[in-house]
Nucleic acid binder design. Structure first.
Length: 851
DNA sequence: AGCTTTGGCGACGAGT
DNA sequence: ACTCGTCGCCAA
């Protein structure tokens, strides 16, 4: 390994921090992130001081050096020539560690590097590949350094005598008392863990000074996105909106440009692009946090490359680029595109309110604001300025709405996962949980096991999945009772899988543990057993988080006695916990997860099925009719109040899980299909689950008709409403038929929009969207995974929307789609489309003769 | 490059 | 005409 290679591997971390050095008496400041200063060869921390709203830099003076751990003895390792010749590594230190997997203490070797660069990635440049069977190795020196120091990102610290000290946040006595009361039945370890979490979560999140930034680049062709690596086109506008209310546009002057003002914003005109960029760089240095929407891939990348092209020196450009990310030398760059792209955030924090990951879609769904429309080929420079400012504005507001909800959410996630803001906003849930687990291992002085070790000891799964290609048997779905049902109450288990993990002591080390006396403690529905002697780490962590969410944060977020601000904050905490908890089971079944443990995931799901079947039985005994159930929810038809209460009590007592009322429906309509129903609540709001008409890829014209259909149906309150509804449906169908037959539509309205799930060449079959994609490719349009293909169905095939015309459309085919979708719904209502629209049914002989 | 899981549905393509 | 597998999307 050559020194240059090492340097190269670390290029992205080798940045020069800018913020002012932390004074001896730095007031409480929030740990935002860490970096590695290549010149000083030192790790540093970025601290945000809320009263001055400044970033301070704290250099490490502890002489802390990176290390990794090997199972082999020092003697054995000394025989490894490659290892000895490895640049920068020095001492081999025999130590003892607890191996949770085998429940024993063992001797290992700690390999300490003298050069901070020496223990790097896990690839070629890492020391890991020189030692077989290593257990812990560093992915990024500075990052792990945070964990090793026992520091928690997002928490407040003070500098004292050149040392970093966490600012004690004592929970108020009454809070402590109430919390302890909630978990008084639990063992000491569990109670302590709860208090530890509460300390992290209760500590208020300070307001963080920040600004968004967005750039516009001169376009050559209207539909080509400029390449940020080349940065050939000039930057014509840079906009920024800050938390102090500043709205600025830096605009490059154009010949004959008419200068104008933008209400509420400062517009600064530049005649030299270099000056403009200079000003943008100054802005980036100015703020503790910079927000972008896709800044990793575009805005900051383009700014840096363009800056280089125009002759700025390395030191003048405040942006460092990794292969995938863009960082700043002073503050923290948060790319909101990446954050909102995260499925867990999308689904659990924002209940799937936005569907596509564009700024326009996310913003319009969350804050009700949209991008401006702009045609770049004809627009004036001032129009570009307005457009650019609007983007910066909504980017900022995405973090500011609901009292800085998103900012707080990110800081809380950073505390829970023990990751820096930069990392937690860019990486997925499996990384969050991994980092948290690693932290807890290090805190206890435990060895971090290798994936292979876990797999070798715990093995694979024992059950057979229903669906081919899956690894184990999952959740249970009860056959729905078809038809319409009035007064339906839906109960669901509070965090079913996390509860299973908690109550059955599931963890990678406690499942199939080595103790013979635990073998009788069988998980129902599996041949696996779980330990009774020690509390499992996963069970402890997930279990305590679960209890906090269910027993503390969720109730508080709805407690009317609290102020609105308090409730909102508790709601954010509650949501952050939800995001982590919901992913906590799945990761153990993911091969890519470092604590991959198939029997653990399998057991969790098995306990879920057990809870469901037991509850169905109990309901029957109580005389409640259960008309449907899926995974963790059951639908009860006209249950009496005391029946519900009894069932809830039964669940708490016998399963140790709270059963909550999730929904009360005026009526629910089931077809015979699972995961398909329409529920209408007391207030008339409609829940539609699984029905085709709702799916993302369905053409808008059909989706729209579907929406209107559900509106008509939700209006049905009494039996006598039915005739009117049928008439309305008939009119609706007629309208759409006519539009189709007369071709009174825009092509876009008929477009199926299907995502390319893999690369074009790797498809085994030739589905419609792939056919369309191939046609696009022939036109020289490059397509990749994740791209959405818009196509219409034509006579004898499909065509991409942009290559098709109205004449091509196979109208009859669309009528078929429409009918099949309508029938799916109407069938459940025991209505018949043919009958409603007065068309004889041709499908049976009987109807043929009746004609 | 990034990747939590299994169950279930409709539509289509490919083979018999 | 029928079955079976693939694909994408959704429920939980």
């Amino acid at each position: 390994m050559q020194a240059e290679e090492l340097e190269e591997a670390f290029e992205e971390e080798a940045i020069q921090p800018l913020g002012r050095p932390a004074p001896r008496d730095l007031p409480p400041s929030i740990l935002l992130s860490a970096g590695y200063d290549g010149r000083a060869e030192k790790a540093f921390l970025r601290l945000y001081e809320p009263s001055s709203q400044q970033i301070y830099i704290w250099y490490d003076n502890t002489g802390h050096l990176p290390y990794c751990i090997s199972k082999r003895s020092p003697e054995e390792l000394r025989r490894n020539e490659k290892l000895l010749s490895h640049q920068g590594f020095l001492t081999l230190e025999p130590i003892e560690r607890y191996d949770a997997l085998r429940d024993e203490k063992i001797r290992v070797t700690k390999i300490v590097a003298s050069n901070p660069l020496a223990i790097g990635g896990q690839g070629k440049s890492g020391i890991r590949n020189l030692i077989d069977e290593s257990w812990e190795s560093y992915i990024r020196y500075y990052q792990n350094y945070i964990y090793d120091m026992g520091l928690i990102p997002g928490m407040p610290y003070r500098v004292e005598d050149g040392k970093l000290v966490e600012v004690e946040y004592e929970l108020p006595e009454d809070v402590k008392e109430r919390l302890s009361l909630l978990v008084e039945d639990e063992e000491a370890e569990f109670r302590e863990q709860i208090l530890e979490w509460a300390r992290l979560l209760q500590h208020p999140v300070p307001h963080i000074r920040r600004a968004s930034i967005d750039i516009e680049v001169q376009m050559t062709q209207a539909d080509r996105v400029p390449n940020p690596e080349e940065a050939l086109q000039p930057i014509i506008a840079v906009s920024s909106v800050s938390s102090e209310g500043l709205r600025r546009v830096f605009l490059l002057a154009e010949e004959g440009m008419e200068e104008d003002i933008i209400e509420g914003a400062e517009v600064e005109i530049f005649h030299d692009e270099k000056d403009l960029i200079q000003e943008a760089f100054r802005l980036l240095d100015e703020y503790p946090v910079i927000l972008t929407f896709n800044g990793d891939d575009f805005d900051l990348r383009y700014l840096r490359r363009r800056g280089q092209r125009l002759g700025f020196s390395q030191d003048e450009i405040p942006i460092t680029l990794g292969r995938k990310f863009a960082y700043l030398r002073n503050g923290v760059h948060i790319d909101l595109y990446r954050f909102f792209l995260n499925r867990a955030i999308q689904v659990y924090a924002f209940s799937d309110r936005y569907r596509e990951n564009t700024l326009d879609d996310v913003a319009s769904s969350l804050i009700g604001k949209r991008k401006l429309q702009l045609d770049f080929s004809t627009s004036s420079r001032m129009e570009v300025a307005r457009y650019c400012l609007q983007d910066a504005l909504i980017t900022y507001e995405l973090t500011a709405f609901d009292d800085d909800l998103v900012m707080k959410l990110m800081v809380l996630l950073s505390r829970i996962s023990r990751m820096t803001l930069e990392d937690v906003t860019r990486q997925g849930v499996s990384r969050w949980i991994l980092t948290l687990m690693e932290y807890e291992h290090r805190r206890r002085g435990w060895l971090i096991p290798n994936k292979e070790d876990i797999l070798a000891l715990k093995g694979e799964t024992a059950t057979k999945a229903i669906i081919k290609g899956r690894k184990y048997l999952g959740a249970m779905v009860k056959e729905p009772k078809a038809g319409i049902h009035f007064d339906v109450t839906v109960l669901d288990f509070a965090s079913l899988y996390p509860s299973a993990i908690k109550n059955w002591n599931l963890s990678y080390e406690t499942i199939l543990c080595p103790h013979p006396e635990d073998r009788a403690n069988i998980i129902p529905g599996t041949p696996h057993w779980a330990c009774r002697r020690r509390r499992g780490l996963t069970s402890l962590i997930i279990g305590s988080l679960r209890d906090l969410r269910v027993k503390w944060y969720k109730p508080l977020s709805r407690d009317r006695r609290l102020s609105k601000e308090e409730r909102v904050f508790y709601d954010v905490v509650q949501r952050a916990l939800k995001v982590i908890l919901n992913a906590s089971y799945g990761v153990f079944g993911a091969e890519t997860f470092s604590f991959y443990c198939p029997p653990l995931a399998e057991s969790t799901a098995a306990i879920g099925r057990y809870a469901m079947t037991q509850t169905l039985e109990a309901s029957e005994k109580l005389g409640i009719e259960v008309i449907y159930g899926d995974t963790d929810s059951i639908f009860l038809e006209q249950p009496r109040e005391e029946q519900i209460l009894e069932l809830m009590e039964w669940s708490r007592k016998n399963l140790g899980v709270e059963l909550d009322i999730d929904k009360v429906y005026r009526y629910v309509v089931f077809s015979r299909r699972k995961k398909n129903y329409v529920g209408v609540s007391q207030d008339g709001s409609v829940d539609i689950k699984g029905l085709t008409g709702k799916k993302r890829h369905i053409p808008p014209i059909i989706k729209e008709a579907f929406l209107q259909l559900t509106r008509i149906l939700s209006g049905i309150r009494r039996p006598e409403d039915v005739e009117g509804a049928k008439e309305a449906i008939r009119e609706l169908v007629e309208r759409v038929y006519n539009r189709l037959r007369n071709r009174e539509f825009e092509l876009e309205e008929l477009a199926f929009r299907v995502m390319l799930g893999r690369s074009l060449s790797s498809y085994e079959t030739n589905p419609q969207h792939v056919k369309a994609a191939k046609m696009l490719q022939e036109q020289g349009i490059s397509l990749g995974v994740g791209d959405i293909i818009s196509y219409v169905v034509t006579q004898g095939g499909v065509k991409p929307v942009r290559l098709a015309s109205k004449r091509d459309v196979d109208v009859e085919k669309y009528i078929e789609y429409l009918e099949s979708m309508f029938e799916q719904v109407l069938e459940a209502f025991e209505m018949d489309l043919d009958q409603i629209i007065g068309r004889p049914r041709m499908k049976t002989l009987q109807s043929f003769f009746q004609r």
